[in-house]
Amino acid sequence: MEIIKDTITFMYPNKLVFENVEIKINQGEIYLLIGRNGCGKSTLLRLLAKIEPYQFKLHLVNEKEISYMPSDLVYYSYMKIIDLLKFYDDTHHNFSLDFALKYLDEFKLNPKQKIKKLSMGEQKILNYLICLSKNAKLYLIDEPFPYVDLLNDEIFRNMIINRYDETKTFIIATHQINEFEKLASYCLLIKGYKTIECLSTDEIRSTVSLSVEDYFKEVMRYVKGD
């Protein structure tokens, strides 16, 4: 079942991002959103998260059931991690403090640590943790991987599978394709401002015998930028 089926046109004051681009998102799938730098990955997520003034028609998903992780989120630096999590627990009805604390422990982060003392990677982890701790229907995750070490990547994937059920949909924008391609059922490939291709990851592997990452390199090398 589709949660989104729409044709979008969107521009910033002096840059056209999408022109009559068709986009279709099915419920219960994990999507990998990929494309070159500046092609509109983050913009697409912002549109879906309704941060930009654009009205996507969402089916089966209530606006409050979207959990969005921006690529650069900044929290009040004087707060402790535990205070931040409690703040979310108080203000978001679908936030699970137990889930957050369980994984905080797996990431080996100290709840009493102040946010300004966290490293870049630890801040990424905290953003991700908060995003996944919400029990939502649509997760929009913008570049979770930079600065994060290999073992924590594993926990990232583990969290998604733990959260996953057939009513939940994940869209993950990333350049680290190989980290997520085993998990993703589809990839959304932004080819230019006029096309977003939606491909089954297993179909790519079985028809051209390439991993999604290698396929992406092959395809994008010959696409002209606009």
Binding site: E29, I30, N158, I161, N162, Y164, K182, L183, A184, S185
Partner: peptide, 14 residues
């Protein structure tokens, strides 16, 4: 299905 997905780190649908 979920345990297998976690062990192998693949999509539960698969």
């Amino acid at each position: 299905i979920r345990d297998m997905a976690i062990i192998l780190e693949v999509n539960p649908n698969t």
